[in-house]
Structure formats: structure tokens, C-alpha cells
Nucleic acid binder design. Structure first.
Length: 822
RNA sequence: GCCUCGGUGGCGGAAUUGGUAUACGCGACAGACUUAAAAUCUGUUGGCUUCACAGCCUUGUGGGUUCGAGUCCCACCCGAGGCACCA
């Protein structure tokens, strides 16, 4: 038996769909249906890398494509757009090496992706395609920047920033991973620079509470919360002796405040220099600060267990004990947590380690009640307070802590405070291939927004790509001349470009109205489609992109453009597809599977069905070369069954078995597809084919009408084969093709036909399975009858013997359970 | 250390949310067709005991609840990911 010709079928129907412009230009279709029938399916748009499509892209794109086709067959309006996160470093780095402009490389890469995606029959709406590097797109990225600027949410400030010496640019906190640059793994250093920031921290509380409104994986929500890092505690004010300086400390464990005996301050803290000035410790302190500034974040991590510090020569008054507390500069105090200053006690193992090293006296104020040795710490924070002023003798509890905080506030010693890990978003990048920040400076150096009529504020082309540590745009004569011509002599443009995460924070708005030249998107179009019904995104984008996109959404709501406040109602992540060796695919390991070569060998349908059949969408799964061939076999069996059905005069009268299998398959796919459980849906289709094949051998396979239903259910998974078979059955495959199978409607299933006629009811005696009863479905409702049948059963009788039946249970249609006693 | 998700045959995985554990696929073994191989087709396939009928065991480990637990509860072990000198 020969195999069907995948290439011939696929080119034929691809061509036909393209001519028909199937599912293209769908942006207005939401207007003709009720809002709940408008589905916006969003794939996290990709960076068009020179490597082309990999099998991981295929998985998530296919999953969404199946949903798109499924919902269209249900008469819903589906919006399934495509675009490119086209600005970014790889194209620029390539330009540095070869001199080829990023615009060219990017265009080429997009063309490759487009060809590969079309081959897969992903039913994207190509008429609404976008690319962030297109002036028609970044004009609005810049316009949005100006809205933030006008509202005071984009501002320039000096500060210590993360600097990647290899990429020659600053990085956001989010782009530094364990002290290394997220992209190139170079050690990140600190640098003092004037940079642009977005005030995402204005929305911190809302970024937390909004998570309750969305259907996202729990782990994703948790990671966002970790990143925001909310922590409640108390700020205590301290007056410095012989000085007008005041030190504020942050404490998350107020029960120990009476135990604190000394204070440490972070080396980067601006007060360090001031307090040491004029004391005999000035030089020691200065040297220590210098030394720690030189450390990269990675050094810092590697030295993490060695605590170092120096005394500043200063004391503060302790509002709790009334004693003097020495102030130390220490490397374990972090500038970006709390206030950068800590009160230290014998209850924190870290403080203890430091104090013992430098012989600083320690104190404890909690008497343990759990009988364990050693001081009470953060994990065993219970016991009775001793030597704690008016709180002595009280047991630590939530109420006690509230009382202490009330007292602290009444006494004016300090006040309740919540700190966050989240910082404002640094968006300046000293790179070429990004959207220019639309700001110009007057001769005095004051920033002014670029006028709206000058947008898009175009990225100049006459630049030198070689990295110098300064923005490449500085080398553009055209850029400077343009600014002077439009704004006056002595004016100069901002030379930095925006972080590419700015581009991707609003692309889903643009999709809804991609060709609008008057607005970033019209309110009507956004209201018609948004929020996104399902967002499919890799787990690697959980923190950065999602946080930023949510921030943009909340801002645009406050500006009155939209009325919702969370952009992605439902989100799911695809798992990673691993190499056959169960390891992450990588060129160096030589375990990369190329989707093009799989298509060449087995066709796009096999690739799609295999990837959906591998296992649950969200889990990581290894590639199995022979299982791919198994899927191809499955599709060939379908092809054979349908082709022989249409040949000769062997008209089949389907057996009840095969009709039942068909209705079960329709039912299962109807239920599983919206739940993204594609693997079990396909398993059911396979079972149906198994039954069909057996029945067909006896002349009792599916009739033509039933076969057509099967093909329609198969269509979202295997769009090419199902189109071919659909047109074969319509008699239109060779010439004059008719309406596509993908325009047909989803078949209904008959629940009665899907049910088994005779049920096999298991009987348990004392919890052990002892017999199977065959009961007619109608009779299975009759409890008395089934129990009687069970007791009559020979095997059941054998296990009961002459023992007494204590209890008998029948769960209709499921199981009989008998309990006997000796 | 904290948070999250997991642990089921040789492998990928299924199990209607407390009701026949191992669906479906891969692999393996045996057979048919063939000079032979490939392809295709047919059977068998969790473990142990048994000539067989059949019985016992089995969802990381140990307890518990229940007529009944992969599923619920408690304790622990292992793996993956995230956060972390976080006061």
C-alpha cells in the first residue's frame, strides 16, 4: 500500500487557500457578532532571528491555529494576527561584524519565517501583519512615550545603572540574571549615567491586585508577585550623635526591635560619605566604599558568604533601649532593599556572623517556648519577650506585633511601611537598532518632546555601528542636522533608543487596527477585540514582558483609551520541546530537530499532529523520532480508508460500533480542544480509526456522510489532508474545488449514539475487584436489579461464601461495592 | 532558606476530579506476505507465583480518612523552575 504524496497535496491546497484569501482581513469581523463570540487569539510575537523557525514555535503556533480553526467552524469571529518583534540586538551585532544594516538582515529573516509558517498552514491573518521596526509602528511607540512624558511618568534621572561592557549598553534590573547580562552572560558592572525611566512603580499595588482577575497559571502569578516583592514592616528613625543626620532603618520583624545593638549601612548609601567626614575613620571608610564599588555584581555574589565592614566612628541613639548604637558600613547591607540601613540583633544569623567577626556585643529578647536550642530566628519566630520595655513577658503574636507598631507610631519613633523590590523601568539603551527616544534638548540641555507632527522620529541610516560605549546615533550627521533644522541652532536629539520591551508592551493594541495612521488604534477596534481571549507565551517571558504590558494597559485605561485593566484574560505557556536525548536543543549538542526537514519527509500535517500528540501542551517533552513516523502512519490509514470508500461500489453500511466510535470522537474533540487537551483528543481520533478499519474489513465501515464528519473533526489538526479528503468526497479534488473544509461547520454529536449499549460494571468485595457484570444501559439505572445481578454472580458468591453482608453500595453505571464480615 | 509545579510500565503519556490504574502512541517479542529486506498486516506485552484455572503485588516513601485513594489529609524523599547576604 503506497503512502500519500504530502508535497503534492500541500502545495495544491496552500495555493488554493492563498487565492481564496481564506481568513484574511478579519479585523472588522468582531462587529458582526456578539462580544463573547469575538475571539482574539494571541501568539507572543517572535524576534525574527536568522536561525529560522524551530520546533518549539511550531508547537505553540499549531495549538493556537487549532483553536482558531475550531472556533471559526463554530461560527465565531476569530482574530489571529501575526507580527515581529523586529528591533533588537542580534541584528545589530551582526551589523557590527559584517556591516550589513540591521534593516536588511531583519527583512530577510522575516521572509524566511513567513515562508516557514505558511508551509505549516498556520491560519494567520497576514493582512494585519506588523513589525516593530517599521516606521508606521514605531511612530506610535514614540507617541506613547510622549504620553508617558506628558503625564510625568517618563523622566530622566542620574543614577547607578547596570552596564554590560560587552553589549556596551545599560540594562534594566530585569535583564541582569545572577549578575550576568541576560543576553551575553558578561559580568554586569555599575555605572553612573543620566537615563530615562518609566514610573511603573506608580502602579505597583494594582499590578499585584490585578492578578486576581485573570486566568493565568498559578506559578506565573507567583513569579510576578516575587518580582514585585512586597514586604510589610516598620521604618525606625534614628538621630545621629553630634550631627544633624538622621538614619532610617527598615525592619520586617518588629518583635526583635528591643534586641538590636548596632546599625549597618550599605557602602553605596549617600549618607556614608557625609557621616565619616572629619572623623579619624574617614580614610578607612572611603577605602572600603571604593573597594566595594569596584566589585561587579558577580564578585558580589561570589563573596556572598564573607561579611566585611568597617566602623564609621559614629553612633546613633536607640529609641528602644536609650543606649548608643555604633554605625558600621557593611557589604551585606543592600542599597536597593528597604532603606539600605539595618538594625542588627542576635536574632538574625547574618547579623550574628558579622558581630562575632568584629566583636560587637549582641543581645536577644525572646525566650523560647518550643524547647529548641539557639536563638529565635525568622523561621521560628515564637516565644516570650524579655527585656523589651512595656512588652516584656508577652508572647509573640500578630496582635502583639500590631500593639508594638501602634506604640511605635504613638511615640513617634517610626512608622509602618511597605517596601517593594520593583524599581522604575530604565528604558534608555545605547544601541542603534531600536526606536529613537523622541526627545530633543535645547542649548541649555533641557529636554523637550519631539513635536507630534515630526513623528515618526526616524531612525537615521548614516551611522557607524562599531560600539564605542556611546550611542551609535551620535555618529549620524543627518540626525543632528534634522534636529537643528526643525528646532533651532544648538539643539540636539536624544541619542539613546528605547528598550525593545517598550515595543512589545503594546503590540496587541496595534494588531486590532494595524493600518491606522491617525491613532495607535481606534477605541472601537480595541473595544471590539480586547482583552485577549488566549495568550500563548513561552515561560521565559513571564516577568518582564507581562509586567510591562500590564503597566501600559493600566496607563492607557487611565488616559481613557480603553475600559479594561488587564490585557490578557487567559494565558497559557507551551512547554519546551527537548532533543531526543531529553536535553534542551542546541546546535552545540547536535540534537536540534529542524521543522523543514520533518515536513520534507512526512508533511506538515504529521509535524502538527505529532507535536500536539506528544503530551500536555504546557510540559517539557523530548522529541521521539519513531513516534513521528507513527503519526504519519495514522494519517496514511485515514487517507486509505477514505480513498477506498470513494472507489468502486462497495457502499458500506456502518456497524453500530463504528458509529459509536465516531460520535465519541466528535464528543471528545469538542470537549478537549477548548481545554487545549490536544493529546487526548488525538488519541480518541486514533481509537476511532482503529474501530473504523476493523469494521471496514467486514464491509461495515463509515458511510460517506459519516466519513465527512470525521474529516471535519480532523481538519483543525491536519488542515491539508482533511482538505484533500473533503474535496475527494465532494468530487472536486481534481478540478473546480468547492468551499474549503475549513469553512464548513463543526459536526454535532449525538450523545445517545456515543454511549455504550452494554455496560461492564465491576463488583468489589471488601474493596477488591472480584467480578464484572454485563448490564444493559437501560437496566443499569435500576439499583435493585443490578445488586441482585451482582449477588447472583458465581464469582461474587464464591468470595462472599457464608459471610454476612454488612453493606452494599451501587454507584449507577460505575461500580458495585459489597462489604462482608467474617 | 522561601515560593511554585511535578514524581504513574522499557519510553512519551491517559484516568470522566473519590469509582475497573496503565487509554492512545512508541519500542520490544512472535507470526503472515517476501528469494531477502523495507513497507504493510495479525497477535502478545506492568511485575511476581502458576502446566493451567487463578491468585498476590503495583501510581516516589511511610501513615491516615473511606465500602473504595494515582486522585483527599499528615509527615518525609527526589526532580524541575523562580526568588534570595531581603533586614
Amino acid at each position: 500500500m503506497s503512502l500519500y504524496n504530502t508535497t503534492a497535496i500541500e502545495t495544491k491546497w496552500l495555493d488554493y487557500w492563498e487565492k481564496r484569501e481564506l481568513f484574511q482581513g478579519t479585523e472588522k469581523t468582531a462587529l458582526s457578532v456578539s462580544p463573547e463570540d469575538a475571539m482574539f487569539l494571541l501568539f507572543a510575537f517572535a524576534y525574527p532571528s536568522g536561525q529560522g523557525l524551530h520546533v518549539g514555535h511550531v508547537e505553540s503556533k499549531t495549538a493556537l491555529d487549532i483553536l482558531a480553526r475550531f472556533y471559526r467552524m463554530h461560527g465565531k469571529a476569530v482574530f489571529f494576527p501575526v507580527g515581529w518583534d523586529a528591533f533588537g540586538l542580534p541584528a545589530e551585532n551582526y551589523a557590527i561584524k559584517t556591516g550589513v544594516p540591521p534593516a536588511e538582515t531583519t527583512k530577510k529573516a522575516i521572509n524566511t519565517f513567513r515562508r516557514q509558517i505558511k508551509r505549516l498552514a498556520i491560519s494567520y491573518d497576514w493582512k494585519n501583519e506588523i513589525a516593530t521596526s517599521h516606521p508606521g509602528y514605531y511612530k506610535w511607540t514614540q507617541w506613547l512615550f510622549l504620553q508617558f512624558f506628558n503625564q510625568g511618568l517618563a523622566h530622566k534621572k542620574p543614577g547607578l545603572v547596570n552596564w554590560c561592557p560587552s553589549c556596551q549598553t545599560v540594562l534594566a534590573n530585569e535583564q541582569v540574571v545572577s549578575g550576568l547580562c541576560e543576553r551575553c552572560d558578561t559580568e554586569v558592572t555599575q555605572k553612573e549615567l543620566d537615563q530615562w525611566y518609566f514610573k511603573i512603580t506608580n502602579y505597583t499595588e494594582e499590578l499585584i491586585s490585578g492578578l486576581d482577575k485573570v486566568d493565568w497559571p498559578q506559578a506565573t502569578k507567583q513569579q510576578q508577585l516575587n518580582w514585585i516583592g512586597k514586604k510589610e514592616g516598620v521604618i525606625i528613625n534614628h538621630q545621629m550623635k553630634n550631627s544633624n543626620l538622621q538614619l532610617d532603618t527598615f525592619s520586617a520583624y518588629p518583635a526583635w526591635l528591643f534586641a538590636d545593638t548596632f546599625i549597618v549601612i550599605a557602602p553605596e548609601h549617600p549618607l556614608v560619605e557625609k557621616m565619616a567626614k572629619g572623623t579619624k575613620y574617614e580614610t578607612t571608610v572611603k577605602n572600603f566604599v571604593e573597594e566595594s564599588r569596584k566589585l561587579t555584581s558577580k564578585d558580589h555574589l561570589e563573596n556572598k558568604f564573607e561579611k566585611k565592614g568597617v566602623f564609621t566612628g559614629r553612633y546613633v541613639n536607640d529609641p528602644f533601649s536609650g543606649n548608643d548604637m555604633p554605625v558600621w558600613v557593611a557589604n551585606f547591607a543592600l542599597m536597593d532593599f528597604g532603606t539600605g540601613i539595618i538594625r542588627c540583633s542576635g536574632h538574625d544569623p547574618r547579623d550574628v556572623e558579622f558581630a562575632e567577626k568584629y566583636n560587637i556585643p549582641l543581645k536577644e529578647v525572646v525566650e523560647r517556648i518550643d524547647g529548641i536550642d539557639g536563638p529565635v530566628n525568622a523561621h521560628t519566630n515564637q516565644g516570650i519577650l524579655i527585656d523589651s520595655g512595656k512588652f516584656t513577658g508577652k508572647e509573640i503574636s500578630e496582635e502583639l506585633i500590631e500593639d508594638m507598631l501602634d506604640w511605635i507610631e504613638e511615640e513617634g519613633i517610626g512608622k509602618r511601611e511597605t517596601t517593594y523590590r520593583l524599581r522604575d523601568w530604565l528604558i534608555s539603551r545605547q544601541r542603534y537598532w531600536g526606536a529613537p527616544i523622541p526627545i530633543v534638548y535645547d542649548p541649555e540641555g533641557n529636554p523637550h518632546p519631539v513635536k507630534e507632527e515630526h513623528l515618526p522620529w526616524k531612525l537615521p541610516e548614516d551611522v557607524d555601528f562599531k560600539p564605542t560605549g556611546e550611542s551609535p546615533l551620535r555618529s549620524s550627521e543627518e540626525f543632528i542636522a534634522r534636529t537643528e533644522k526643525l528646532y533651532g541652532k544648538g539643539w540636539r536629539p536624544e541619542f539613546d533608543t528605547m528598550d525593545t520591551f517598550v515595543d512589545s508592551s503594546w503590540y496587541f493594541f496595534r494588531y486590532t487596527d494595524a493600518r491606522n495612521e491617525q491613532e495607535f488604534a481606534s477605541k472601537d477596534q480595541m473595544a471590539a477585540w480586547l482583552p485577549v481571549d488566549l495568550y500563548m507565551i513561552g515561560p521565559e517571558h513571564i516577568v518582564l514582558h507581562l509586567l510591562y504590558a500590564r503597566f501600559f494597559t493600566k496607563f492607557l485605561r487611565d488616559e481613557g483609551y480603553i475600559s479594561f485593566d488587564e490585557p490578557f484574560s487567559k494565558m497559557r505557556h507551551q512547554g519546551m520541546i527537548l532533543g531526543p536525548d531529553n536535553k534542551k536543543m542546541s546546535k552545540s549538542k547536535g540534537n536540534v530537530i529542524n521543522p523543514d526537514s520533518v515536513i520534507d519527509k512526512f508533511g506538515a500535517d504529521t509535524l502538527r499532529v505529532y507535536e500536539m500528540f506528544m503530551g500536555p501542551l504546557e510540559s517539557d517533552k523530548p522529541w521521539d523520532v519513531s513516534a513521528v513516523a507513527g503519526v504519519f502512519k495514522f494519517l496514511n490509514r485515514i487517507h486509505r480508508l477514505v480513498i477506498t470508500l470513494n472507489q468502486g461500489d462497495q457502499r458500506q453500511t456502518p456497524s453500530s460500533d463504528v458509529i459509536q466510535a465516531l460520535h465519541q470522537a466528535i464528543q471528545k474533540t469538542t470537549e478537549d480542544i477548548p481545554k487545549l487537551k490536544f493529546n487526548t483528543a488525538i488519541a480518541k481520533l486514533m481509537e476511532c480509526v482503529n474501530t473504523w478499519e476493523t469494521a471496514a474489513k467486514e464491509g461495515a465501515g463509515l458511510d460517506e456522510e459519516s466519513a465527512k464528519k470525521f474529516i471535519r473533526v480532523l481538519a483543525p489538526f491536519a488542515p491539508f489532508l482533511s482538505e484533500e479528503l473533503h474535496q475527494v468526497l465532494e468530487g472536486t479534488a481534481k478540478s473546480n474545488p468547492k468551499a474549503s473544509v475549513h469553512e464548513s461547520s463543526w459536526p454535532e454529536f449525538d450523545e445517545e449514539l456515543a454511549k455504550e449499549d452494554v455496560l461492564s460494571i465491576p463488583v468489589q468485595v471488601n474493596g477488591k475487584l472480584r467480578a464484572q457484570l454485563s448490564i444493559d444501559r437501560v437496566q443499569s439505572e435500576d439499583t435493585a436489579f443490578v445488586l441482585e445481578e451482582a449477588l447472583k454472580n458465581e464469582r461474587v458468591q464464591h468470595w462472599i461464601g457464608d459471610k454476612k453482608i454488612k453493606k452494599q453500595i451501587y454507584v449507577p453505571g460505575k461500580i458495585v461495592s459489597l462489604v462482608v464480615i467474617d
